[in-house]
Write a protein that binds this DNA or RNA. Structure first.
Ligand SMILES: [Mn+2]
Ligand SMILES: [Mn+2]
Ligand SMILES: [Zn+2]
Ligand SMILES: [Zn+2]
Lengths: 144, 144
DNA sequence: TTATAATTGAGAATAAGTCTCAATTACAAT
DNA sequence: ATTGTAATTGAGACTTATTCTCAATTATAA
């Protein structure tokens, strides 16, 4: 079976794309991310590692990682896209505090269930889904 | 009880804001929208009605309509925000075809249920939620 | 080693949305 | 009705995330 480490390389090979140092570096950084991140953050971390990869390559590689199902876009509240590494992670939903921005990841079988029924009812072939629930966290409810 | 026609006016009055011809015109157009729309579309329709309302006022008024719970942002797949009129409409989820873009609105009690449980479990006070499920519609599954 | 198509970096371009500010206007108080 | 004033408006400059362009570079198969 395939190691997560090689999954991007294989993906690229399979489609006749090249395995470049830039792509490797970006994939490495992505694998190191523990939580949600944005393009800019990748760029910044690459800089810290004294890599001189361009903004353009970061965005281009993000698209490839998405196509490879290694990352997916999440959190749509803000103006720029947020991503998360989904390698070996269970699909989950997000609960977001409108005041402090805290994000909680959760899973509820009822939701998967309802979605499955919807896909079936409308004859859709499932690809992905996003659930974003907003509210006020306990702390923020107290503060006046 | 209050007529939908006056809901925006009352909202503005209540907070000491003015009921201007521009706001009325934008609200009228929003009320006429049958499906999801974007800022640009409001602007365009206002132009058709030979109104000369500025882009600035359209965006400013959209914010007010959101605050008044007359519209809400939906559909996060694209780069710009989409909205829908929620006056008198039941809260629903969206099923979107990745290929042709067709959007189906649906409601599944299991989803509301799961969300309610999540809010309770994490002590959040509910505000709103969005569910976007993507896949391939029947037609698009057939085509090759 | 070579040939070639894919990839890269740099920076220009795009586009949604926000901001600024002087001129205008709604509307409450006279 | 008139006036005073704070809120609102239009015009266009600005911001910012992302995409595009293209000449130079590079991975890889032959
Ligand atoms: Mn997450
Ligand atoms: Mn809808
Ligand atoms: Zn909070
Ligand atoms: Zn379709």
């Amino acid at each position: 079976m395939e190691d997560n480490k090689d999954i991007f390389k294989s993906f690229l090979k399979k489609r006749g794309s090249k395995w470049t140092p830039e792509r490797k570096a970006i994939f490495d950084v992505v694998r190191s991310m523990r939580f949600h991140f944005e393009a800019d953050e990748l760029f910044f971390r690459l800089r810290q590692r004294k890599s001189k990869i361009s903004k353009g390559s970061v965005y281009r590689t993000i698209k490839l990682l998405e196509a490879a199902d290694i990352i997916r876009p999440v959190i749509f509240t803000e103006r720029h896209t947020h991503y998360e590494n989904i390698l070996g992670r269970k699909h989950h939903s997000h609960l977001i505090c409108r005041k402090c921005g805290r994000i909680i990841e959760f899973f509820r079988p009822e939701i998967s269930d309802g979605l499955k029924k919807a896909y079936r009812e409308y004859g859709f072939k499932e690809i992905d889904h996003k659930v974003e629930a907003t509210g006020l966290c306990r702390k923020c409810q107290k503060k006046k």
